[in-house]
Amino acid sequence: MNRFRVLFPLAGLLVGLTAGWVLFPALLYRTEEQPLQFSHAVHTDTGGMACADCHSFDADGRFVGIPTTAQCASCHADVMGETENEKRFVEEYVKTNREVPWKVYARQPDNAYFPHAAHVTRGGIACERCHGPHGTMNTLRPYQVNRITGYSRDIWGSSIGRVGMEPWEGMKMDDCVRCHRETERARACLDCHK
């Protein structure tokens, strides 16, 4: 009888822990599909391209980010390969001159300022350091967005407890600060905020 009573607090603890560790993350994030599937691997392996071939800098050193449809169209003016996605890209975006509404995994909020030039060009940090093996992947993984903050899940990292994360995972301020502390760079808030 008494032993049975002990089960109530235990069950409560279990329910609490499950709610916090399993249910909460599942509810917190909304999963969205990319408008098109895109294979980085095809471009980097077969196409032999480097990251900077598409994700380049403009004349003032500003990182351009995801290439525009016009940039893609310099190769894909017409369908080159056989995939359904490429066909759709050419039909729906190149021919109509629209931009693809990509969902950006690494998108930081407006108040964060991240100069790619300082990190990549001057700092010599490889793209993989922060973006992981993105460039060798064959598909675009589903994009997860935090229902409260609207942030991409990549900013927090896939692990809700932030344990056992890969080195490239997590783009919270703490993650930036850790590296900056180690390398003794940039001390002021406004260095990374705008």
Binding site: F57, D60, G61, R62, P115, A117, A118, T121, L190, K194
Partner: peptide, 16 residues
């Protein structure tokens, strides 16, 4: 205009 300092720094960084 700290945003302009960012732009200037970015330009400098891109040039090394």
């Amino acid at each position: 205009c700290h945003g302009r300092l960012h732009t200037a720094r970015e330009k400098a960084a891109a040039a090394g």
